[in-house]
């Protein structure tokens, strides 16, 4: 009797799941004939009917992180301009590669988008991602946060020049914290060494926040993480940012000079943007670019970014693509010099 009940319950669940999965495959197969090239062209000729159903924005990071929060705030603002709901889905795993692969392999119809980050121009050179920026059609860049060289407020140097002079006198003595080896904030520190010729001692942490904690505790001498991550303590007078690794000054720290001003041509930081799978029709990209760029200019989104200390840097499809390509070449070379390429 018990056996029968158990087997029956199991069967019932299997049926429900089979039915659910069955529906999916059915609808998928229904969509396929729609997408035959000839028909698509006809649609395009007449008038672009996009989007006709909700759009999915894949975030390759866990819910609750900075990237996730930015994606959700942007998606909320963009719905109005797109005329369809945007569902944000967190697909984590494999250091974001799982989510990236999913979108790269999705149908290039503009209904599956990726909230991409600068990791896409770093991971492939380390042999950690089979997917590169070329697997995507860049739609719009939304944000850029430079690596900000930050030290305790009572440190013996007050400017970038004094810091570099101190570093030259004490090679390897300044311990700099940031993300894991090969991560973006490590590359920030590494490019400071590269362009200025000083020698630092890099200490890898699990991310910007733990590195900052170590800096506050006096366990290391500097960090090269984003302005957003140090802003609170800078405002409270516990830390000071000497310079940012960018061409333009950061919105959240307008008084802090750039490395560019000191004569070093270097820009290292995190950027975030919207990508579609490569091969997405140009009209669809156009439409998406318009919607997301408009959304990024909405007051609510701007306030969100300001409160979080995140910098808004907007670029359309073409400029965004150029920037990604340039970054890709820069990091390829840098990682090669660091002996981290694979």
């Amino acid at each position: 009797m018990k056996k029968k009940v158990m087997v029956l319950t199991m069967l019932a669940f299997m049926l429900v799941f089979a039915a659910a999965c069955g529906n999916n495959t059915e609808s998928a197969s229904e969509q396929k004939p729609k997408a035959t090239p000839s028909e698509e062209k006809e649609v395009a000729k007449d008038e672009l009917k996009f989007p006709e159903k909700p759009v999915t924005l894949v975030v390759p990071y866990a819910a609750g992180g900075g990237t996730d929060a930015t994606a959700r705030a942007l998606a909320k603002a963009a719905e109005e301009f797109l005329g369809q709901p945007i569902g944000v889905v967190n697909k984590t795993g494999g250091n974001a590669i799982v989510g990236m692969s999913e979108v790269a392999n999705a149908k290039p119809d503009g209904y599956t988008l990726l909230f991409n980050t600068s990791e896409i121009v770093i991971l492939p050179h380390q042999g950690m991602s089979p997917i590169t920026y070329e697997d995507f059609a860049q739609i719009a860049q939304i944000n850029f946060d430079p690596s900000a060289l930050t030290v305790p407020a009572d440190a013996p140097y007050n400017t970038l020049e004094e810091f570099l002079a101190y570093a030259k006198e004490n090679p390897g003595k300044i311990r700099v914290g940031g993300s894991g080896t090969g991560g973006i904030w490590h590359l920030g520190s590494a490019s400071i060494e590269k362009v200025t010729g000083v020698k630092l001692n890099y200490v890898p942490y699990d991310g910007g926040a733990p590195a900052k904690t170590a800096l506050l505790g006096g366990h290391i001498e500097a960090v090269t993480i984003s302005p957003a991550e140090v802003l609170t303590q800078v405002k409270a007078g516990e830390l000071k940012t000497l310079a940012v690794l960018a061409t333009d000054r950061s919105d959240s720290m307008p008084d802090v000079p750039t490395f560019n001003e000191a004569g070093y041509d270097v820009a290292v930081g995190v950027w975030r943007g919207i990508d579609a799978p490569a091969g997405t029709p140009a009209e669809v990209i156009e439409k998406l670019q318009e919607a997301f760029l408009k959304a990024a200019k909405e007051q609510e989104f701007i306030t969100f970014m300001e409160n979080n200390g995140l910098g808004i840097v907007l670029k359309g499809s073409e400029d965004y693509h150029k920037m990604v390509k340039k970054d890709n070449d820069f990091y390829k070379e840098l990682l090669g010099e660091l002996g981290l390429s694979n």
Partner: peptide
Amino acid sequence: GALMVQGLQPGPL
């Protein structure tokens, strides 16, 4: 993140 969104910078201040 939630505090920051509300414009409340957690910290000594």
